[in-house]
C-alpha cells in the first residue's frame, strides 16, 4: 500500500518533527519564561518576532531562509568558510527552518502557562527557602504541565504539516528532505489519489487523536488542580 518512497517520507517527517519539537522545548522554555516575567522594553519586539510565522505565508519564510542559508547567503558563506557546507537543501536546513516556523506554537502555550501560574506560588516557594532555579523546577514546571503538553503536540503537529518552508529550503530530495506533505502533493500531481488518500487520511486521523488526547488530559489536569 505504501511505497518505499512513502515510508521514507514518513520517517523523515517524524524525525524532523520530533527533533524540531525537542529543540523548541529546550529553547522555547527559557524564552517563554523570560517573556512571561520580564518588564524589559524589548519584550514586545521579541513577542512580535516569535509570532511572525503565524501571519507570514510559509513561502516568504522559506524564501528568506534560502537566501540566508544558501551558499551565497551570509550564514551559508560562513558555513563554507569554516569548512562546512551550505544548509540549503539538507535535512539540517529543514530543522533550522522548522524551528522558526513552529516557534509560536511552542512558545505561546508555554508563555500563557507560565503567566497562569502567577507570582504567588513562586513567592511562597521563595519564603520556603527555594532558590530561583529550585522554584522553577519544583513549582513552575510541574504547574505548567498542561502548557507543555499543548506546546509539544502543537509544535510536533505543525511541523508535520509544513509544506511551503520545506519546499523552499528543502527542495524535494528523496531520503533527505522529501517529507509527508510533499509526498502527498506528488501523489496528487501524478493522479495517484489512492495513495494520497492513505497518507492524507492517516495524517488526519493521527492529528485528531493527538489533539483529543491533549485537550482531554489538560481538562483532567485543570479539574484536579483547580
Amino acid at each position: 500500500m505504501l511505497t518505499e518512497n512513502d515510508i521514507s517520507a514518513l520517517w523523515i517527517t517524524f524525525k524532523l518533527a520530533g527533533l524540531t519539537t525537542l529543540i523548541l522545548l529546550l529553547l522555547g522554555t527559557p524564552l517563554a519564561w523570560w517573556l512571561a516575567n520580564t518588564r524589559n522594553r524589548f519584550k514586545t519586539i521579541i513577542e512580535a518576532v516569535v509570532a511572525l510565522p503565524l501571519v507570514l505565508p510559509p513561502t516568504v519564510l522559506g524564501f528568506y531562509f534560502l537566501i540566508v542559508l544558501g551558499p551565497y547567503g551570509p550564514l551559508g558563506k560562513l558555513m563554507l568558510l569554516t569548512g562546512g557546507h551550505s544548509l540549503a537543501f539538507t535535512f539540517a536546513g529543514l530543522v533550522v527552518g522548522s524551528v522558526f516556523y513552529s516557534m509560536p506554537f511552542v512558545v505561546q502555550p508555554l508563555q500563557n502557562a507560565f503567566i497562569t501560574i502567577g507570582k504567588r506560588s513562586m513567592e511562597v516557594a521563595a519564603t520556603l527557602r527555594a532558590s530561583p532555579v529550585d522554584r522553577f523546577f519544583s513549582i513552575a514546571l510541574p504547574l505548567a504541565r498542561p502548557g507543555f503538553l499543548t506546546a509539544t503536540v502543537l509544535g510536533f503537529a505543525h511541523t508535520v504539516g509544513e509544506f511551503g518552508v520545506v519546499l523552499m529550503i528543502g527542495g524535494n530530495i528523496p531520503g533527505e528532505t522529501h517529507v509527508l506533505s510533499i509526498a502527498i502533493y506528488d501523489h496528487v500531481e501524478s493522479l495517484e489519489y489512492g495513495q494520497a488518500h492513505v497518507l492524507a487520511g492517516g495524517l488526519l486521523v493521527i492529528s485528531f487523536i493527538l489533539l483529543l488526547l491533549v485537550y482531554g488530559l489538560n481538562r483532567r489536569f485543570r479539574i484536579v488542580f483547580s
Partner: peptide, 27 residues
C-alpha cells in the same frame, strides 16, 4: 527572600496545588 530565615503566611493559603498536604509541609 529565599535566604532570609523567615516564615510568611499570606492572606490566602496559597498551597501548592500539585502537591499533597504532606509534600506542601515538607517543601
Amino acid at each position: 527572600p529565599h535566604k532570609r530565615p523567615l516564615g510568611y503566611v499570606f492572606q490566602e493559603p496559597s498551597l501548592f496545588p500539585h502537591m499533597l498536604v504532606k509534600q506542601n509541609l515538607e517543601y
